[in-house]
Design a binder for these strands. Structure first.
Lengths: 343, 343
DNA sequence: CTGTTAGCGCGTTCAA
DNA sequence: TTGAACGCGCTAACAG
């Protein structure tokens, strides 16, 4: 088992200085095309690849980015992960996951410990972490670069990527109205969850655009979970017939699945007697019966955008520019239909 | 912003050599309790923590372990991740995820590239990767330490952790028989998926123990996916009444959810007219209607065990010892019940 | 555009 | 049990 060649070996073989080889492998433009070609040839011939460990030490960086998460949807986490992985890896960065509890009063301290012990060079913030003032403040104070995925506030645009939740929630609401629904209920998610506020506003927009009035009876509070969906569904479906909504729009797929559960329980047929819509298009959405009409969030695209922004920050080259919101789209499946009964 | 203290600062402050400080932070026993105490005091006072980057370079290791995965269940991946994270981190190791395609003909080469470019010190192999001969061979040849999670073969016990799939599948089958089911169908998973063979054998065991005979009509091949579950469900439920199974045991939760879908589609009531059981107890299992009876795999425990084994290998201290299989358990929910109709 | 000279912060060989 | 000096493989000034 022969030892792998180091940068010195390449330099000697190519009859150039170590620094030149360094410039070549770092894509510096202060090298003539000819020498670059030549050095690259030697590199290939020797099968050389630079030692990340040495680069870390000499470059004063870990080549690691942190991805803390507290998200009940496994698919959300894996989507962000796989969406960002490619961009990071292309820049020789690796992602380090970190499970945490966003409810914890010492969240920021706990994250600070993580960031400093692992010495990550930057951090990707997913909801609900992307909205934690304490975390943002801590990172800023410690000068750790970060990018926020789908925060609820629209300030800080050069360090955030957005998904246009409000617009798509409005579109879904209008779509339900178009199907003839006039009593469209909405199940709010957890206040800490990023999209929540935007989605609710979108629902209100949609009602207004459809000439329907907002009615507090049809707005219930959930917390994004499946169980909350069940509870909300029961509450809405047990209203007396004249008041009972003909459509329920839940601001997460998980809650929509819970609403379906409640409907089955109470013998309410979907979509015949009730339309149900979710948000997110997680795998679950197409694995329940009937398959959920929902909103597809281009999460992987969002994550990719976020990763690119973070890498740009770490390179300090390009000027920070706000990202364009990635567009979501409606996915119409079997859980929604035109209203059956007369009004 | 003051620069963080290095090992030299600590040594000077404690009036000992750098090497002594090094021994203290590495828990070497060649240090008297008194000096250790003293040095630890200085370390705490200065808020010193060793630079991972320097340790990486000097120690010829990356302090990184690879976790390649190709698994359709997001929750499986996140479970393994969170189960192993603590053990790894306690040893100052970080986990680097790597998405890959287990079907690819160049899987081993692709993984080899990953392992060498990231320079991971070890690898955790999840199903179906834990069964790939090509991958195992590659890692052995390149002398990369690894641990396999739930491989189908029982050889290589000092580098594997097991879940006892066979026993729990048998238990589930017997449980269904106890409920009075005599026509118990089984949906096989993907051959490449680790548990598959074991689970099928467990089904056969269970039948035998319940004095029921294996009948090829009631054994259908799926591939572990939701769609395969639908197809299998349709096939089984469209048999003529006398032959139709009264219980369907699918070897993954995803397929069981597909079977439920087929049942709803065909108007077969669950669990009244049909019992359905899954395997894995993923979140999905309790989010479908009705909630699935299934087998809970202590995945996090398995992953933790695997992580500990890998760290032991990397330390080269303890002698490699086989792990004790982690026990699974039946989770009885609403999708199974006693047979309703006469035989 | 290229080369020379110092480190980066720790582990490890020896000797004491 | 402790210490001194060297080296890990590369990047970063600066000089040419």
């Amino acid at each position: 088992m022969m030892t792998r060649p180091a940068i010195g070996t390449v330099a000697a073989e190519a009859r150039v200085s170590i620094k030149t080889v360094s410039r070549v492998i770092n894509n510096s433009d202060r090298v003539t095309a000819a020498t670059r070609e030549h050095v690259m040839g030697v590199i290939r011939r020797l099968g050389y690849s630079p030692s990340p460990n040495a680069r870390r030490l000499a470059g004063h960086r870990s080549l690691l980015v942190g991805l803390p998460f507290d998200n009940p949807y496994a698919s959300y986490v894996t989507d962000v992960q796989s969406g960002s992985l490619a961009s990071f890896r292309a820049a020789n960065y690796q992602v380090v996951m970190h499970a945490c509890d966003s409810q914890s009063p010492v969240l920021a301290d706990e994250l600070r410990l993580f960031v400093h012990s692992v010495r990550v060079d930057g951090v990707l913030l997913t909801p609900p972490l992307s909205d934690s003032a304490a975390v943002i403040e801590m990172l800023d104070r410690d000068e750790i670069p970060f990018v926020r995925i789908a925060p609820s506030g629209r300030n800080d645009p050069t360090r955030s990527v957005f998904a246009g939740d409000r617009e798509s929630a409005a579109a879904m609401t209008r779509d339900l109205a178009t199907l003839g629904h006039r009593r469209i209920a909405f199940v709010i998610g957890h206040e800490r969850d990023a999209g929540t506020a935007q989605r609710y506003m979108g629902y209100c927009d949609g009602l207004r655009l459809s000439k329907l009035s907002l009615d507090a009876r049809w707005v219930v509070e959930g917390d994004g979970s499946f169980e909350a969906g069940i509870a909300s569904g029961r509450k809405l479906l047990r209203m007396r017939k004249a008041d009972r909504p003909t459509a329920i729009f839940a601001s997460t797929d998980l809650m929509a699945a819970g609403v379906l559960h409640a409907a089955h329980e109470l013998g309410v047929a979907v979509p015949t007697a009730l339309s149900v819509a979710g948000f997110g298009d997680e795998p679950l959405a197409s694995q329940v019966w009937p398959r959920l009409t929902t909103i597809r969030q281009p999460l992987q695209g969002l994550a990719q955008q976020a990763a690119a922004m973070l890498m740009a920050q770490l390179r300090r080259d390009s000027v920070p520019a706000p990202a364009v919101p990635v567009q979501s789209s409606l996915v119409i499946r079997q859980s929604t239909a035109v209203v059956a009964s007369r009004c």
